[in-house]
């Protein structure tokens, strides 16, 4: 087997997995704390990617898209939470599904009305448009390495924020036992707003980072959304650490599957999920098991 090729695929898989982590950590936290399933989470990823495309073609400075995606995501998440989702925490699952599905349709329609339905490539920023020699005969894209580093940095920030700060421990309490928040006299509304805003910002950041890697296209959020569901199911709900390890696992399995078993590549991830459901239906990394 071609060893440096395998090495490149492993790096690709880790980098893909880290992007999946940025998206699914928001998904699992929003679900764990508020008990609401947000199908439109994939749309946030899509909006982030198109934001990067627009910024890059207007200014040529792709890096500008990163802070804008984070700030825009915080604002968008807060607006959605306060304006819409807040009323749906106590409603039936079916209502939440249809509400967020409606949002997907509306976001996609807005995208199509404003930017059309074409595929667009987003150029890698010039400063990172080179290959880093890793071994004598193997070099790896600098942009991909940069994405890896940024994602790891964000993941680290999240760990610190959740494990080491007061508000982080309140979020953990809320994710494990939602009724704890009221018992402890914490302001549940503030926690909900914060979790939703941060989750949305992470998904948009992931979209902006991913744009140069795979171009932007209609419905790009959906394929990521469904893979992220698999991540959440494999990782166990409400668990950030679970989402992290599961995202890396799924990223590696999916990338290696596409490289070495292209005939059944689309199915491999789902077979893995089936295996996990058989073995540990509450997820590989569910707390307290």
């Amino acid at each position: 087997m071609d060893l440096s090729g395998l090495f490149a695929q492993v790096l690709n898989g880790l980098q893909y997995g880290l992007l999946l982590f940025l998206i699914s950590s928001g998904l699992t936290l929003i679900f764990g704390v508020m008990g609401v399933i947000n199908l439109a989470h994939g749309s946030m990823f899509m909006i982030g990617a198109y934001l990067a495309y627009v910024i890059a073609s207007l200014t040529g400075a792709l890096w500008l898209a990163l802070p804008l995606a984070v700030l825009g995501g915080l604002a968008m998440g807060a607006a959605l939470e306060a304006g819409l989702f807040r009323r749906f925490y106590k409603r039936e699952h079916l209502d939440q599904v249809l509400l967020t599905f409606a949002l997907i349709l509306l976001f996609e329609e807005a995208r199509s009305a404003m930017l059309g339905n074409d595929f667009h490539a987003v150029p890698v920023p010039a400063i990172l448009d080179f290959s880093v020699p890793v071994t004598a005969e193997f070099a790896y894209s600098a942009y991909r390495l940069a994405v890896l580093v940024v994602c790891l940095f964000v993941a680290l920030l999240m760990f610190l924020g959740i494990e080491r700060t007061r508000i982080g421990s309140a979020v953990r309490a809320a994710a494990e036992k939602p009724e704890m928040v009221d018992l402890l006299g914490l302001d549940a509304r503030r926690i909900h707003l914060l979790v939703f805003a941060v989750g949305t910002a992470l998904a948009m950041l992931a979209g902006a980072l991913a744009a140069p890697l795979q171009s932007v296209y209609p419905n790009m959020g959906e394929s990521f959304l469904i893979i992220c569901f698999v991540v959440v199911v494999v990782g166990g709900v409400g668990s950030i650490a679970g989402a992290f390890w599961a995202a890396l696992l799924i990223g590696l399995v999916d990338t290696l599957g596409k490289a070495y078993l292209p005939e059944i590549a689309g199915l491999v991830v789902y077979l893995l999920m089936a295996g996990v459901l058989l073995w540990r239906p509450s997820g590989l990394f569910a707390p307290g098991r």
């Binding site: 399933i37 699952h93 698999v230 199911v233 199915l267 789902y270 089936a274 459901l277 239906p281």
Partner: peptide, 23 residues
């Protein structure tokens, strides 16, 4: 397989298996 889970998990798992058959 899906019925080893409940509620939202059931929803996510049925969606994922549906997608698998789609592929």
């Amino acid at each position: 397989l899906s019925l080893r889970t409940r509620g939202f998990f059931f929803l996510m798992v049925t969606l994922a298996f549906g997608q698998m058959l789609f592929f």
